[in-house]
Nucleic acid binder design. Structure first.
Length: 434
RNA sequence: UCCUCGGUAGCUCAAUGGUAGAGCAUUCGGCUGUUAACCGAAGGGUUGCAGGUUCGAGUCCUGCCCGAGGAGCCA
């Protein structure tokens, strides 16, 4: 029985008869010789069919194949310098599973296409070499995050997606009808993470989050994934170090295991190779000074705009940690600096090359009275936070954590100019399908 | 919500207010080493929608719809 093999392992089968199961990627024809390109999800392999060397029906069935028709193909593997990939399949037999009709040919040709067309055909676009490479890197990044926390004895505690209220009242939430009651899709696992940290010490959650903001930029999705660690007894410095080690670990893992994919994406890996700790740390105060020197119109007390983030990150060759943001622009649960209450013990990490904020976090307010005051100031519904306040009533301890946006990390590591390619099926302001 | 740009063949794009075109894709033909193969031929159009100006509108004007980039907001 001929073994079914994956194209990525084809080199191991040189000289042997194998079975490939996949799709037709492309077909070149030159009279009495055919060069079908097969893809199986793991790679692309060129086949050769010479008319005089095979049965007429084999030649005819390959000749009539259309792009993305599904098939099984048998043949002998041969090293061949002229073939892309260095190996070639001398086809002896094909079994067509489904032929794509010429009346409705596969829409995505090996030529260029516009963004809208590709997004409308995202379910098919995923088959392309470039998209497969991105999916591979995304998978590696997610696995690296899990390995990082699992290896450090963090306990994964899943947080709910349906929530009764806002984590931070200010942002727009997607509302859903929950048995005639209002519920919202989560925008962060943060508050529940704090409860989990009090139970297990070190925890993380990893799931989708939703923001109903009408943001329409290359950095925004309405549905995206975050990994969020939370550590009891940790202070701001601890969490900054944790963030730094996480990012360095993830980058190193991708460089180690996904070189091929980065090459496909034409990523300049030298920009990633320098991302080793320590990362520069910059107080918000100094960041504002620096931005003013560079011509920004930022004033102390306001948040960075997209341009400011780019300006800042361009000054460093690796991710930079900005800490000590004004309390007023941070969420109600942020711990104020005891020495300077107008500043919060918060930290964001900005990715290099203008990819913007990839991490946001800090130390959480541990005092019940302080939280109550801030909930009132921000006009949040106190009832919804009673359970959260319980965490300060029953053995409150200092603790800190952060959230890392997976898609922005994928965009940065892959060197993409838009987050829409970092997630299999992006959800954006004007995009809910496919 | 605002600003800018765009919408012409299945796709990517051309077309001074004067006969709607090219490349790719599809079909047919040719080619025994192709590399987004190449060569030849054919089919393929309510120029986003609705009005208006004009002898004549893809082109100018008004409104609307859809999309892209950005701002605001945010991660």
């Amino acid at each position: 029985m001929t073994p079914a093999v994956e194209i990525r392992n084809i080199a191991q089968f040189e000289g042997q008869d194998v079975l490939i199961q996949g799709w037709l990627y492309n077909l070149r024809e030159s009279g009495k010789i055919l060069f079908p390109l097969f893809r199986d999800g793991t790679g692309i392999l060129q086949g050769v069919v010479v008319k005089s060397a095979v049965a007429p029906e084999v030649f005819e069935s390959v000749r009539n194949l259309t792009q993305e028709s599904s098939l099984r193909v048998w043949g002998k593997v041969r090293g061949e310098k002229r073939a892309p990939g260095g190996y070639e399949l001398d086809v002896t037999k094909v079994e067509i599973l489904q032929i794509v009709p010429t009346t409705r040919p596969y829409p995505i040709t090996p030529k260029e296409h516009g963004v809208e067309f590709l997004m409308d055909h995202r379910h098919l676009w995923l088959r392309s070499t470039r998209q497969r490479a991105i999916l591979g890197v995304r998978h590696e990044i997610i696995r690296a995050c899990r390995d990082f926390f699992d290896d450090r004895e963090f306990t994964l505690v899943d947080t709910p997606i349906l929530t009764p209220s806002a984590c931070e009242g200010t942002t727009t939430l997607f509302e859903v009808n929950y048995f005639d009651e209002k519920a919202y899709l989560t925008q962060s696992g943060q508050l529940y993470n704090e409860a989990a940290a009090m139970a297990v010490g070190k925890t993380y959650c990893f799931g989708p989050t939703f923001r109903a903001e009408k943001s329409k930029t290359r950095r925004h999705l309405t549905e995206f994934w975050m990994v969020e660690p939370e550590v009891a007894f940790a202070r701001l410095d601890d969490i900054m170090t944790l963030a730094e080690e996480l990012v360095a670990f993830v980058v190193a893992r991708v460089l180690e295991r996904r070189r091929e994919e980065l090459k496909t994406l034409e990523r300049n890996v030298s920009k990633l190779e320098v991302c080793v700790p320590p990362f520069p740390r910059l107080a918000y105060d100094d960041a504002v000074k620096m931005l003013k020197e560079k011509g920004s119109e930022i004033v102390w007390g306001s948040d960075f705009g997209g341009t400011d983030e780019t300006l800042l990150s361009e000054s460093f060759d690796r991710p930079v940690l900005v800490h000590g943001y004004p309390s007023d622009i941070k969420a109600f649960y942020m711990q104020p600096d005891p020495a300077r209450p107008e500043v919060a013990l918060s930290a964001d990490m900005l990715a290099p090359e203008g990819y913007g904020e990839i991490i946001g976090g800090g130390e959480r307010a541990a005092d019940e009275q302080l939280l109550l005051r801030r909930i009132e100031e921000q006009k949040l519904p106190r009832e919804a936070f009673e359970w959260y306040l319980d965490l300060r009533r029953y053995g409150s301890v200092p603790h800190a954590g952060f959230g890392m946006g997976i898609e922005r990390v994928v965009a940065w590591i892959c060197g993409l100019d838009h987050v829409r390619e970092t997630i299999p099926f992006p959800r954006m302001l004007y995009r809910l399908t496919p």
